[in-house]
């Protein structure tokens, strides 16, 4: 395990996959690639804030792709991140509906094979809506769900960090919050439209 400093591509992958030193690996990605990838955005109609947003989104996607075992290492991490950033930024421009002629020309050179088709515009929209749904939960719900499902803490550990009476109360609250989130997702029109679109494209 790399305990800081420089990472090779293989060490980065290992740190992210095994969730050991993952945050050090992410810090390294910022140090190594933020400047070059942010200029990709700012040279193509993006602001500094856009560059920060897109890079953050790219890192989140990259970590998930690696953890899902979908990054096969056919290109270097640098090349992969570059392609991911370029496609994410183009999708964002499309979303904003202000695709300029310059960007269209730029799009002609976009990589077709570096990013899986599943990482397309619709999925990105769904991800945004999913995050928005989590954001609509109350702080206590968000905390319990994150501690249990993201950080993998036990009911007892969660109980120590909250003011609930006992772990059964925490457990009930967790299910109530999970149900609330599932309902928010179920009632989200944008998610429903995008799911229909994906079904349609896949011929279901």
């Amino acid at each position: 395990m790399n305990t800081g400093g420089k990472f090779s591509d293989a060490e980065l992958m290992e740190a992210i996959q095994k969730n050991e030193g993952k945050n050090d690996a992410i810090r390294f990605l910022y140090q190594e690639y933020f400047d070059s990838l942010s200029s990709l955005i700012t040279y193509n109609s993006g602001s500094t804030e856009d560059a920060q947003d897109i890079f953050q989104e790219v890192i989140v996607s990259f970590v998930q792709i690696v953890q899902d075992g979908k990054f096969r290492g056919e290109s270097s991490i640098k090349t992969f991140l570059y392609a991911l950033a370029r496609n994410t930024w183009l999708n964002e421009l499309k979303r904003r509906g202000r695709m300029t002629q310059r960007n269209k020309l730029y799009e002609e050179g976009r990589d077709r094979f570096a990013v899986p088709p599943s990482e397309a515009f619709e999925n990105r929209e769904i991800r945004k809506q999913l995050l928005a749904a989590v954001g609509r939960l109350g702080e206590s719900c968000r905390k319990i769900l994150a501690l249990f499902y993201y950080e993998g803490q036990s009911m007892k550990e969660i109980l120590e960090q909250t003011s609930y009476e006992n772990d059964q109360v925490v457990r009930n609250k967790k299910y109530k919050c999970l149900k609330q989130l599932a309902d928010l997702i179920n009632n989200d029109k944008i998610i429903a439209e995008n799911l229909k679109q994906i079904d349609h494209e896949q011929g279901f």
Partner: peptide, 20 residues
């Protein structure tokens, strides 16, 4: 399933946002 994915996505995004 989507709710569980959303929680994990939100957790990861918060971690990356802090580093950012």
């Amino acid at each position: 399933k989507m709710a569980l994915n959303a929680i994990k996505l939100d957790g990861l995004k918060s971690e990356v946002a802090e580093i950012s």
